[in-house]
Deep mutational scan, measured.
Amino acid sequence: MSIQHFRVALIPFFAAFCLPVFAHPETLVKVKDAEDQLGARVGYIELDLNSGKILESFRPEERFPMMSTFKVLLCGAVLSRVDAGQEQLGRRIHYSQNDLVEYSPVTEKHLTDGMTVRELCSAAITMSDNTAANLLLTTIGGPKELTAFLHNMGDHVTRLDRWEPELNEAIPNDERDTTMPAAMATTLRKLLTGELLTLASRQQLIDWMEADKVAGPLLRSALPAGWFIADKSGAGERGSRGIIAALGPDGKPSRIVVIYTTGSQATMDERNRQIAEIGASLIKHW
């Protein structure tokens, strides 16, 4: 067993022997301040990774656009098919120029040779490549099948209805392509620590998230040296922004954090800054 596999296998073990965790309302004060600064709703939840206990939450059962955070769930569904012998990570998928959609920095470079399922998941999570996500959605049967996968996990809230990039439209009061912070946090925890996926697939999923290259201005910008984070960000229309993450000190994750916002007129930089400040408060009061 590799060191990384050992780390993920012992996530519940280490967490069980940690000192009790206590909620700190100071972080919620910052979440509410972010709402004021952005002029928009902000949803927040913080779960203990081992027990699933909610440590703090704000608007945990209000719907927010998922945006690209759905790509972690998508690759979880792909990995479940791999575990069941219905898919192979090494299978190569070929596609054409007509398949390319807006923001496809990886797939646009491989029109000639195609990409493997493993490479597509890596591109979808680490670079948020939209064509990679659409190609992977095709392998599982489309958005409705991802929703069905989530329902089978016990998540009857999260739903995907459309493809990239239309799913980022974020129309107010439109339930399409949305989740709730509580539902997303619980589902992410199941994917990373539950028995739904094999140990190898859980490790692969967290490795992809740990290698995320496009979430630097968010929670990662607030992390002290030595902290662990595996995350996936999302951005959408109407001032929408979000991030889902597993993080913790001492090089291992111990909490799940989900943050979503929508309806702001603020710039992307300002949305990023507010999420980073929430992260800084979380870490300060850990």
Rank of each mutant, 00 (worst) to 15 (best):
residue 1 M to K: 01
residue 1 M to C: 01
residue 3 I to R: 09
residue 8 V to T: 14
residue 8 V to H: 15
residue 9 A to G: 11
residue 9 A to Y: 15
residue 10 L to W: 07
residue 11 I to G: 08
residue 13 F to M: 15
residue 14 F to V: 11
residue 14 F to S: 08
residue 15 A to R: 01
residue 16 A to E: 05
residue 22 F to Y: 10
residue 24 H to Y: 09
residue 25 P to E: 12
residue 27 T to Y: 02
residue 27 T to M: 06
residue 32 K to P: 01
residue 34 A to G: 07
residue 34 A to D: 02
residue 35 E to H: 02
residue 38 L to C: 07
residue 39 G to A: 13
residue 40 A to R: 03
residue 42 V to N: 04
residue 44 Y to Q: 01
residue 45 I to H: 05
residue 47 L to V: 13
residue 51 S to A: 08
residue 60 P to N: 10
residue 63 R to P: 08
residue 64 F to G: 00
residue 66 M to P: 01
residue 68 S to T: 00
residue 72 V to E: 01
residue 75 C to Q: 01
residue 77 A to L: 11
residue 81 R to D: 05
residue 81 R to Y: 08
residue 81 R to T: 07
residue 82 V to G: 05
residue 84 A to H: 12
residue 85 G to L: 08
residue 87 E to N: 05
residue 89 L to V: 06
residue 91 R to G: 05
residue 93 I to V: 13
residue 95 Y to A: 03
residue 95 Y to S: 02
residue 97 Q to D: 13
residue 106 V to E: 14
residue 109 K to I: 11
residue 109 K to L: 14
residue 113 D to N: 13
residue 113 D to I: 08
residue 115 M to Y: 03
residue 117 V to H: 03
residue 118 R to Y: 15
residue 118 R to D: 12
residue 120 L to W: 00
residue 120 L to K: 00
residue 121 C to I: 05
residue 124 A to E: 01
residue 130 N to A: 03
residue 133 A to Q: 00
residue 139 T to S: 15
residue 141 G to R: 06
residue 142 G to P: 02
residue 145 E to R: 14
residue 146 L to D: 00
residue 146 L to R: 00
residue 151 H to L: 14
residue 151 H to C: 10
residue 158 T to L: 01
residue 167 L to R: 02
residue 169 E to W: 14
residue 170 A to P: 08
residue 172 P to R: 11
residue 176 R to Q: 14
residue 176 R to A: 08
residue 177 D to Y: 01
residue 177 D to F: 01
residue 177 D to E: 01
residue 177 D to H: 01
residue 179 T to M: 01
residue 183 A to L: 07
residue 188 L to E: 01
residue 191 L to K: 01
residue 193 T to P: 01
residue 194 G to F: 09
residue 197 L to G: 04
residue 198 T to S: 13
residue 198 T to R: 09
residue 198 T to E: 11
residue 198 T to K: 13
residue 201 S to A: 10
residue 209 M to Y: 00
residue 210 E to T: 10
residue 213 K to I: 11
residue 214 V to T: 09
residue 217 P to V: 11
residue 218 L to N: 03
residue 220 R to G: 04
residue 224 P to I: 03
residue 225 A to I: 14
residue 227 W to D: 00
residue 227 W to K: 00
residue 228 F to T: 07
residue 231 D to Y: 04
residue 235 A to H: 02
residue 236 G to E: 02
residue 236 G to Y: 01
residue 237 E to Y: 12
residue 242 G to H: 02
residue 242 G to L: 00
residue 246 A to I: 13
residue 249 P to W: 04
residue 252 K to H: 13
residue 253 P to I: 10
residue 254 S to R: 12
residue 256 I to E: 01
residue 257 V to C: 07
residue 258 V to A: 09
residue 259 I to L: 10
residue 260 Y to K: 00
residue 262 T to W: 08
residue 264 S to T: 12
residue 265 Q to R: 13
residue 266 A to E: 12
residue 267 T to K: 12
residue 275 I to A: 02
residue 276 A to R: 13
residue 278 I to E: 00
residue 282 L to V: 12
residue 282 L to A: 08
residue 286 W to E: 02
